[in-house]
Design a protein around this nucleic acid. Structure first.
Length: 236
DNA sequence: TCATAGATTGACT
DNA sequence: GTCAATCTATGAG
């Protein structure tokens, strides 16, 4: 028997993150329901989380209006807006006040791929390939239709199942058209996990000192590793 | 008040 | 490989 979701989310993010691989995130909305099997996540520590402060985390410099939900109770989502056009989704972990979380970077769409495709088409000229429906944090949020409006929303514990996709499908049947967000954990934790430095994080937080990016091996839905971009000075 | 960088993405050279 | 989309937070002036 495994611990429940909310118990799991009390642990430090680097412990929680690999355990979430293979879990299925379900976002039911009036416009359609999408289920995502998580294939790539990143851990972000809170300022009080350990002896190793995390300069790559939004919470590193303390609480602001934007990141407040990261300091809230675990088992909720933190959705932030970045680069003026993308949203990204985190699960809040650690007890209230600590400020840690796990960023959902990529996943395989296992329910509602047609809905997800339609949503992704809003920003593109052509339909994305199946594997890239939810590849990269911005695309995950778009496929699931998560925005700042969902920041702080509760994450329902849908239990642990040998077949999380089947379990998710059941729950969608049972709950019907209501708006809700939930997670089914995989009964068997991934035994083989790829661990790397975090993508797109500049400075010390993006180095091997923080090997907090976790992915399932051989999954086409995992985003390619990118170094943080070095922004050049604007020429005018 | 202004400048800069960012847990990014898609289009383009 | 480069670049633009342009919100949010921070630090310098």
């Amino acid at each position: 028997m495994t611990a429940g979701l909310h118990e799991l989310l009390l642990a430090p993010a680097p412990d929680v993150a690999p355990r979430l691989l293979g879990a299925v995130l379900v976002c039911a909305r009036p416009g359609g329901t999408v289920g995502l099997r998580l294939t790539e996540v990143e851990a972000y520590g809170g300022p009080q989380d350990s002896d190793l402060p995390d300069p790559g985390a939004h919470t590193y410099r303390g609480r602001t209006a934007r990141n407040a939900s990261m300091f809230g109770p675990p088992g909720h989502v933190y959705v932030y807006f970045t680069y003026g056009l993308h949203h990204a989704v985190n699960f809040v972990c650690r007890p209230e006040g600590v400020g840690g979380g796990v960023l959902i970077r990529s996943g395989e769409v296992v329910l509602g791929s047609e809905v997800a495709t339609q949503r992704r088409l809003a920003n593109r000229s052509s339909a994305p390939a199946f594997a890239s429906l939810a590849r990269g944090p911005g695309n995950v949020a778009q496929a699931l239709a998560l925005t700042r409006d969902d920041d702080g929303a509760a994450l329902a514990d849908l239990g642990t199942a040998p077949d999380p996709v089947a379990r998710a499908r059941e729950e969608v049947e049972r709950r019907g058209e209501d708006t809700w967000t939930g997670l089914v954990l995989a009964q068997r934790p991934a035994s083989d996990v790829v661990v790397t430095a975090r993508t797109g994080v500049s400075g010390e937080g993006g180095t091997d000192a923080y090997p907090w990016r976790y992915a399932l091996p051989g999954e086409p839905t995992v985003s390619p590793y990118r170094k943080a971009t070095v922004k050049r000075r604007r020429t005018r």
